[in-house]
């Protein structure tokens, strides 16, 4: 078991390397020049060239890559070209809003989606099932920002129930924090609820068709007991997988949601960095998100062994 875990962890290194090389090449082989952005409107060529030199952008790509990887290995994520702050401090600054948003969204999603999925599977082929499934398809057919605008228009501008935008750290004012988080979390959850409800339903239906469930039913065990004791436990595995792969979806939703609700999180940081060609920041952020994605999926893989007694390594 320990050997297996070690192997799996080591296997993530080449994947991270692929990400690093890909991002680096994408940034350096396409036209674009952070120096011109820093220099501004009235810059001359010589001024731009001087700034470029100071940033080390006139060195060969291989050298730049080696310098960057060397920095990473020394625990240094680099320094933002534009603001001069360290990327680590930028991330530390911008991570809390995103972590809170993602956490609240996840809790909201699981609280809503799993019961929806169970209900749909339990009432399979009834109007309940069809209604839940139709709603869930709708959930990922409408762009996130449209949902966000509709919620703002209705609940913030017309009804004044919630603030329009912004972020307050929970430590500063917990009530304000909660009020400002509710609409963005609902917006972001809309896609995610759809996905997880569908998956819960599908895997429950799979499990309900298994022999041991049929046996249990045949033995006359109460339907609710069958559902919760046998079926749901086994259905948890595919649902976990979706939570893992859905993480990517969550990130794309986060980028848009943060823009619509003006939440100063990592998603906006990345988009801003891309538009302003802040190479060190883009590199570090994409590497970091990829790393988290890999870690989440690894943890989920490993947790199978705990959830499913049939899987043994």
């Amino acid at each position: 078991m320990r050997g297996y875990i070690t192997r799996r962890v080591l296997a993530t290194i080449p994947v991270l390397l692929v990400v690093a090389v890909f991002v680096f090449l994408l940034l350096r082989l396409t036209p674009g020049d952070p120096a011109a952005i820093i220099a501004g409107d009235t810059a001359t060529d010589a001024q731009i060239a001087a700034i470029r030199h100071n940033l080390g952008l006139d060195q060969p790509i291989v050298v730049q890559f080696a310098l960057w990887v060397g920095q990473l290995l020394h625990g240094n994520l680099g320094t933002s070209i534009l603001s001069g702050k360290t990327v680590a401090s930028l991330i530390a600054d911008r991570a809390p809003p995103t972590i809170w948003l993602a956490t609240i969204t996840m809790v909201l999603t699981i609280v809503v989606a799993v019961p929806m999925g169970v209900l749909a599977a339990w009432r399979h082929k009834t109007w309940v099932d069809h209604l839940i499934m139709s709603l869930s398809v709708l959930g990922f057919s409408v762009p996130v920002f449209v949902i966000g605008y509709l919620l703002i228009g209705l609940f913030a501008v017309d009804l004044h129930w919630f603030p329009v935008q912004g972020y307050t750290p929970p430590s500063q004012d917990f009530w304000a924090f909660l009020q400002k988080m509710i609409l963005p979390a609902i917006t972001l959850a809309s896609i995610y609820v759809a996905l997880i409800a569908r998956m819960t339903r599908a895997s429950l239906l799979d499990v309900l068709g298994e022999d041991y469930v049929r046996t249990a039913r045949a033995k006359g065990i109460a339907e609710r007991k069958v559902l919760f004791r046998h079926a749901l436990r086994n259905a948890a595995i595919p649902v976990m997988t979706v939570i893992g792969t859905g993480f990517a979806l969550l990130i794309s939703g986060v980028v848009v949601t943060e823009s619509v609700f003006n939440i100063p999180g990592l998603g906006r940081l990345t988009v801003d960095a891309i538009f302003s060609r802040d190479y060190p920041t883009i590199q570090a952020l994409i590497l970091l998100t990829s790393g988290i994605y890999i870690a989440v999926n690894l943890l989920i893989d490993l947790s199978y062994t705990l959830l499913d007694p049939r899987i043994r390594y």
Binding site: S89, I91, P96, I99, W100, P169, S171, Q172
Partner: peptide, 20 residues
Amino acid sequence: SPSVWMASIGAAVLSSVVAF
């Protein structure tokens, strides 16, 4: 080292989440 910077980010995040 990777764990060093992960830890440093972690600590910073934690402190800004918790800080009053």
